[in-house]
Design a protein around this nucleic acid. Structure first.
Lengths: 336, 336
DNA sequence: AAGCAAAAAGTTATCGATAACATTCAACGC
DNA sequence: GCGTTGAATGTTATCGATAACTTTTTGCTT
């Protein structure tokens, strides 16, 4: 990893500049020179120093930063995958970080990653600290906020409305005759910064719709825990212990809903006869249960892809849409 | 994002060098100067340019590259999380990539990321192209190979033996009286490069153990597909259509095993009475099913953490172990 | 107040690639 | 064979931080 343009230039008996031109493949050299330089570069295993390129341009043209709430989330894994596939094909590098659902941690990450002068950033959610927003506004780098759509993005936004997801599920459950609904969530915000803005927005949309229909949400249980199977299992246990007579429970996500399903079965409750269960997210497992889970499918990979494409378009100077809506799809299933 | 040391130096009436010293907090400046410089740096929102630092040192001291087979894998999500938590705490940045189970794609990624002169690399698996190995050996950067343990690592290795996982499960199922075993895998290698070396090693260990016990593997079905629920579902369907009388099926991973479980239930097969099912990996869902899945739990986060720590130790010049074994744990469950 | 050590601050060179500009060279028409 | 043109190639400056070195200032002793 030691050879540079200078070494190749010396070996080929030309100047650094000629080598640079050859290796980037433009024009300004003879076929003979090109062949000789290329052969030498190949032989010494030349790897261009992107640090030098980026530094010279005071902008690392192929570096993109992406920050997600949790790296262990199945949904975000797919988003990440969508982004990575779209970007790596074009020669971009992905620098990642996790906020652990804390806007302060996000700010710390943004500050760190900005030091690398990335060509662009992809952030998750629309809740950021004032410091983060200042930092980003002071930058020319394009920023895509994904997941939770915002009508006034810092720069660009790709995703859908969590509020609408909740509202749609509320309407659906009302239409199915549900009248006494509960909610089980997780990751209650601990730092007062709207850390779980997205789950909270779904709950709001859900609750608002139920109220409008005249059958308001009766009970809710929000755990200070990772939104996984266990949280769903114990969350439903807690909720049912506190409140009798619920006929449906809406969960923060599918993992929790499947956990809830497991609890209901362990208690001998029939789903959906005794109690309905609805999730959110559309994890693969949900569609292969004995009874298909009633849930909202989120096109995760498509969101990642769209975010990457919006970013790349902006980097190429093309004028793209400020807001890209990627619609979710309510899947009726057999548990709601 | 425009201010640099020069700007601050000018504003403070000192030289760049003094500003540099103050901001890195060493010595060689008066308290008065320090306060003034710090105040100005704060006011202009100075973000140091790591590109310049890394370039000057011809090594990006805080950049670590990590490559996983798939970003959508729950297991690797946890590994990634373990790595990220350990590294971000120490101020390192993580650059990621996915091989999509292709050694060639890995080489392409390594080539790209080496251009950033990372302080170290974390790779998944022990199967690499000759080109990758050459590239890495020519580098001073520490490399940790995780997941599949190798006794002769390029540099360092953290993980466990997939062969042993398969062997252990084979022994266990034999002890439970299983005599006619099948296997359902996925990600059949299409490019002949050992793309799925790790699942293949488990299968080998499994088959070898069964043979030694006198009850060799009867049927196997390896799909050209992502190893998810669907693959498990249809994989078992295919296997059972081809071969009657199987009394247990070992799956590539838990997701596939759960898919298989769903197929068995859909066909009215009783588990484990009519057919046993065993998975691998230890996804959270597996432990909350009505019947706990027989599987091997892999301490994913611990592997990530150990890999990060081994890398950091090496970067600090400490002599660490070449090979770190992170033991897996067979969980008997009730399906095998 | 001179002398001297130590602290404070400044100067220079450097890392690799490339844009912008400068120069050399070859081929061609007349 | 001489000027012209365009292709081929070379030179210089630059990006920001910092190591290594040099100079200036301060503070203290006698």
């Amino acid at each position: 990893m030691k050879s540079n343009l200078e070494d190749i230039a010396r070996a080929a008996g030309v100047s650094k500049m000629t080598v640079s031109r050859v290796l980037r493949g433009g024009s300004g050299f003879s076929d003979k020179t090109r062949d000789r330089v290329k052969k030498i570069a190949e032989a010494v295993g030349y790897v261009p120093n992107r640090l030098a390129v980026a530094f010279g341009a005071d902008q690392s043209g192929t570096l993109v930063g992406m920050c997600v709430p949790r790296l262990t989330s199945g949904l975000f894994g797919h988003v990440l995958d969508g982004v990575d596939r779209a970007l790596s094909r074009l020669g971009y590098q992905l620098m990642i970080g996790a906020t652990n659902h804390s806007a302060d941690e996000e700010e710390a990450w943004v500050r760190q990653v900005m030091a690398w002068r990335p060509a662009g950033l992809i952030l998750s959610g629309r809740t950021h600290t004032a410091g983060t927003v200042d930092l980003l506004r002071a930058t020319a780098a394009p920023v895509v906020e994904i997941w939770d759509l915002t009508t006034s993005p810092i720069d660009m936004s790709v995703g859908f409305s969590h509020f609408d997801c909740g509202a749609e599920m509320g309407q659906f459950l009302i239409r199915r005759g549900r009248r006494r609904a509960g909610y089980v969530g997780a990751l209650a915000q601990t730092d007062g910064r709207g850390a779980d803005g997205m789950g909270a927005a779904r709950l709001e949309g859900f609750a608002a719709t139920l109220s409008r229909a005249g059958h308001p949400l009766i009970a809710r249980e929000v755990l200070h825990d990772a939104p996984g199977f266990y949280a769903g299992y114990y969350g439903l246990e807690t909720l049912l212990a506190r409140q009798v007579g619920l006929d449906v429970v809406y969960f923060h996500n599918d993992e929790m809903a499947i956990g809830g399903l497991a609890y209901a079965q362990s208690r001998g409750l029939r789903v959906p006869e005794d109690i309905g269960i609805a999730g959110w997210g559309g994890m693969e497992a949900a569609s292969i249960l004995p009874r298909r889970l009633t849930t909202t499918v989120v096109p995760t990979t498509a969101i990642g892809k769209a975010a990457a494409e919006a970013l790349v378009a902006r980097l190429k100077g093309e004028a793209g849409p400020e807001v890209t809506v990627i619609p979710t799809r309510l899947v009726p299933g057999e548990t709601g």
